[in-house]
Amino acid sequence: MSAALPPGTAAPWQPAGTVYGVLLNFEHEHTLWRPRMLEAPYQAPPQAPVLYIKTANTWNPDGGQVTVPADAPGVEAGATLGLVRDAQGQWAAALLNDFSLPHDSYFRPPVKYRCRDGFLGTPAALRPLGSLAELATLSLSVHVNGELRQSVDLGRLRRDAATLWADVNDFMTLRPGDVLMLGCDVAADGGRPLLRPGDTVELSAPGFAPLRHHLSAEEARA
């Protein structure tokens, strides 16, 4: 049973629906991996957004712990924003950390790399939006132990927030409460900030409260 919240403290936000991630939605990421898109079995770049799901066991509120498996070199940070639309059509955004284990598959990443317990850092609250156009000028910062390790420019999305939402809804219906993440950019080598036990990672963006998580080592099995 979880501990009771102090009087007057609001419960942290959690997704009310399904959380969808998207791959290859940054210009650099797409360019870097384009040669592999031309290989079998696909032999062409994807025409529609490439989606995956972050299951409910991954949700990890601000200030939580993320476990690094003993057989993994570390955990990658994935700074992103999630779009949320309510039943009244109002937009909001969530600052999210889409943690994953390093892997070498972009089209069909195995669930075990992305859906481990605690592998989606979620904020205490959403930020209401007047329109999705507000997001185009935002930059997300990733600090590890206080050091800036990555800046993510949302102006370099292949599909901006409004286009991505529309293109996904062309083939499936996003319901009120569902979360659609915009994607996670990569460094020049194709990787993302690698986190190890003992690290603290903080995401920040203008208008959003910082999102922090601490990395710990997996306990040895008896």
Rank of each mutant, 00 (worst) to 15 (best):
I53A: 05
Q43E: 14
T67A: 05
Q47D: 15
L38Q: 06
P41H: 09
P69Y: 08
Y52K: 09
T58H: 00
K54R: 09
A56M: 03
P49S: 03
A70Q: 13
P61A: 09
M37R: 02
T67L: 12
Y42M: 11
G63R: 02
D62F: 04
V50Y: 03
T58A: 03
I53Q: 09
Y52I: 10
N57T: 11
E39V: 02
P35N: 07
G63V: 05
V68M: 12
T58E: 04
K54P: 05
A40F: 07
G64K: 10
P69R: 14
Q47E: 03
P69V: 11
L38N: 07
W59M: 08
L38M: 10
Q47K: 09
L51N: 02
G63H: 00
A40Q: 12
V68I: 12
P41R: 10
I53V: 14
Y52D: 04
P41M: 09
Y42F: 14
P49N: 08
V68D: 00
V68G: 00
P45C: 01
R36N: 11
Q47L: 15
A70E: 10
Q47S: 11
Y42E: 06
N60A: 02
N60V: 05
R36A: 13
Q65H: 13
P61R: 12
T58W: 10
A44C: 13
A44Y: 01
Q47Y: 09
P45T: 05
P49L: 02
N60S: 04
K54I: 07
W59H: 05
P61D: 01
P49A: 12
K54S: 04
D62T: 00
A48R: 07
Q43F: 15
D62E: 06
T58C: 10
V68N: 06
G64Q: 03
L38C: 13
P69F: 09
A44N: 10
P35Q: 10
V66A: 03
A56E: 14
V66H: 08
P69G: 13
P46V: 01
Q65D: 07
K54H: 07
Q43D: 15
A48I: 05
P61Q: 06
Y52S: 02
V50S: 09
Q65W: 12
E39C: 09
G64P: 04
Y42P: 07
A70T: 13
N60P: 00
A70Y: 11
A40M: 13
D62G: 06
A44V: 03
R36D: 15
V68K: 15
P46Q: 01
A56F: 09
I53K: 02
P61T: 06
T58F: 06
Q65F: 10
K54W: 13
A44T: 14
A40C: 02
V68F: 06
P46D: 12
W59C: 05
A44L: 15
R36K: 15
L51H: 02
A44I: 10
T58V: 12
P61K: 06
A48C: 01
L38A: 14
V68W: 13
A48N: 08
M37Q: 01
I53T: 10
W59Y: 15
E39F: 07
K54F: 13
T58M: 07
Q47C: 08
P45L: 11
M37I: 06
Y42N: 14
D62L: 00
W59D: 06
V68R: 13
P35H: 12
T58D: 07
P45R: 01
P46C: 12
A44P: 09
L38S: 08
E39W: 11
Q43N: 12
P45W: 01
